[in-house]
Amino acid sequence: MRLYRSPAPLTVALALALSLSFGVTTHARVPSEDSAAAPFGAECRTSVQGSHVVAHCHNPYVETDRVQLHIECVRWWDLDTDSVPVDAGPATSVRLSGRCWKEIGSAWVSHQNRGS
């Protein structure tokens, strides 16, 4: 009498039994340089009304954040635009705006750390 039609279940059971027999080793977590970095980045909210985009950014952190609004237009003949970069200092709010001639495809804000 055969117990298994294929060797797959037996192989899986053997692999599971062998993996459980080896102990789980834990290692102390060493903090990386990135995890020790101070929080950074302005919080930005964008709104689109027709062919106009407005982004309001507030930086609650100590480091200056250089923000820039990027706009992609839907029409192939409508030029995509980037706003002038603006420094959002500590506890500062800035307003960025732009437009397309017709519909807005997408809009986002990029961030660059400018230091203190």
Score class of each variant (00 low, 15 high):
1 M>V: 15
1 M>Q: 13
1 M>Y: 15
4 Y>A: 15
4 Y>D: 12
5 R>P: 07
7 P>D: 09
10 L>I: 15
11 T>Y: 11
12 V>I: 15
13 A>T: 09
14 L>S: 12
15 A>R: 08
17 A>W: 09
17 A>R: 02
17 A>S: 15
18 L>K: 10
18 L>P: 10
20 L>C: 06
21 S>I: 15
23 G>E: 10
23 G>C: 02
23 G>V: 05
24 V>I: 14
24 V>Y: 01
25 T>F: 03
27 H>I: 11
27 H>F: 15
28 A>W: 12
29 R>P: 01
30 V>F: 07
30 V>E: 11
30 V>S: 09
31 P>E: 08
32 S>R: 11
33 E>A: 10
34 D>Y: 13
35 S>Y: 07
37 A>D: 06
38 A>E: 15
39 P>H: 08
40 F>E: 09
41 G>I: 13
42 A>T: 13
43 E>A: 14
43 E>H: 14
43 E>D: 14
44 C>M: 11
46 T>E: 06
46 T>Y: 00
47 S>C: 05
49 Q>H: 12
52 H>F: 02
53 V>R: 00
53 V>C: 01
54 V>D: 00
56 H>F: 05
57 C>F: 11
57 C>V: 05
60 P>V: 11
60 P>M: 05
62 V>H: 05
63 E>H: 13
64 T>L: 06
70 H>P: 03
70 H>E: 11
70 H>K: 04
73 C>Q: 00
74 V>E: 03
74 V>L: 08
75 R>M: 09
78 D>H: 00
78 D>C: 00
80 D>R: 00
83 S>R: 01
86 V>S: 06
87 D>C: 11
88 A>F: 06
88 A>E: 02
89 G>M: 11
90 P>L: 01
91 A>W: 04
92 T>R: 07
92 T>N: 07
94 V>E: 03
95 R>I: 14
96 L>V: 03
97 S>Y: 03
98 G>H: 04
100 C>N: 01
100 C>L: 01
102 K>M: 04
103 E>D: 11
105 G>M: 08
108 W>F: 12
108 W>I: 06
108 W>R: 13
109 V>P: 01
111 H>P: 12
112 Q>K: 11
112 Q>A: 15
113 N>A: 10
113 N>Q: 05
